Amino acid sequence: MKIRRLSGLHAQPGRWTRIILALLPLLLLVALYAVASQIRLADNPHDKLMPGFGKMADAFWRLATEPDRRSGEILLWMDTLASLSRLGIGMALSAVLGLLIGLNTALFPTLRAALNPLLTVLSIIPPLTLLPILFIVFGVGEEAKVMLIFIGTVFVISRDIHLATRAIPHEQIIKALTLGATQLGVVYRVVLPQIMPRLINTTRLTLGAAWLFLIAAEAVASTDGLGYRIYLVRRYLAMDVIIPYVAWITLLGFTMDWLLRLTVRWVYPWHDRDA
């Protein structure tokens, strides 16, 4: 029987070992919170800073099942739908435009010379500093929130796609042109399929930043959304609502990341083998 190494540069943990190692830090964090919460509640049963798991579960269940008295909507699902709609539209626009910019600037030298300096300057601007400008230009509606997500992620995606495209062997392009392919055919039939897995992975990596921009925009000016709800109840020190909402956002982000990973694995199985 082969004994797998569990430490060192050549460690080879098995599948179940990897699962246990992945869950262990999370379980330790939950246990640490439970102990700290119990200590605080023993000193002060009305402590709001670290509510017990039972109180947080009751608050989450209420938000997920009971209609709001004023609006008649179930708050958790209304906020989730609003936030995911903004995030989805912003990331879709960012992925499409980032792909087109990165792909074409990498393959066409004239376009690269014209746009790269501008894109470099724009990518340096901190997106959150543009939030007041976006609210002035687009108002406090959906457009400003979507634009913040778009501006905050499009340049990261375009620059990563640009680098990935430049890394493709130039011999492929020469061979395709020699065999009669048009220039646009080379871009969208030879290079694009090789870049699509990289686009999905880059989109995965920018989801964290996109969530940050979404929460910031909803906190400043919104009437619904996960970020709006967190900043609304913070004035009441409602940690029994804030912590479950943060956990819910984390679960949504993890699920989106997992689905994108599965998409690459199923649609582009050759990419995992090459990697």
Rank of each mutant, 00 (worst) to 15 (best):
F60S: 04
R40Q: 05
T65K: 12
A57G: 08
V35E: 04
S37W: 02
L27C: 09
H46D: 10
W61I: 00
R62T: 15
G52R: 05
L63H: 06
T65Y: 01
M56H: 08
D58P: 02
N44F: 06
P67A: 12
G72V: 10
T65Q: 03
V30N: 04
A36Q: 09
G52P: 07
S71Y: 11
W61D: 03
H46S: 13
L29K: 11
G72Y: 14
D68K: 00
G54E: 05
A31G: 09
S71F: 15
D68A: 06
G54L: 00
A36R: 00
P45L: 07
D58F: 10
V30S: 06
A57S: 07
A36Y: 02
H46A: 10
M50N: 02
L24Q: 09
P51H: 04
F53R: 00
P25V: 11
L24R: 13
E66Q: 13
A34C: 09
S37L: 03
P67W: 10
F60W: 11
R62N: 14
E66S: 10
L26H: 05
L49H: 04
L63M: 11
A34Q: 09
L26K: 03
Q38Y: 09
G54V: 04
L26I: 12
R69D: 11
R69V: 10
L49A: 14
R69T: 01
G52Q: 02
P67M: 11
T65N: 12
R62L: 09
N44G: 00
D58R: 15
W61H: 06
R69P: 06
T65C: 08
S71W: 14
G72E: 08
A64F: 07
A34R: 06
P25Y: 08
L63C: 00
Q38N: 12
F53Y: 12
G72S: 07
S37C: 13
M56K: 09
L28Y: 12
P45R: 03
R70I: 02
L41P: 03
K55D: 15
M56L: 11
D68Y: 01
E66F: 14
A34V: 06
A42L: 10
G54F: 02
S37F: 03
L27Y: 13
D47N: 15
F60R: 06
A31V: 15
M50H: 01
A57P: 05
L63S: 11
M56V: 05
H46K: 08
A64Y: 06
A31M: 13
V30G: 02
G54T: 10
Q38M: 12
A59H: 00
R69S: 12
V30Y: 14
R69H: 06
A42F: 07
A57V: 13
I39V: 15
D68Q: 04
L49N: 02
L32N: 02
A64S: 15
E66V: 14
Q38A: 14
T65L: 06
L27K: 10
P67C: 06
R70L: 08
R62V: 05
G52Y: 04
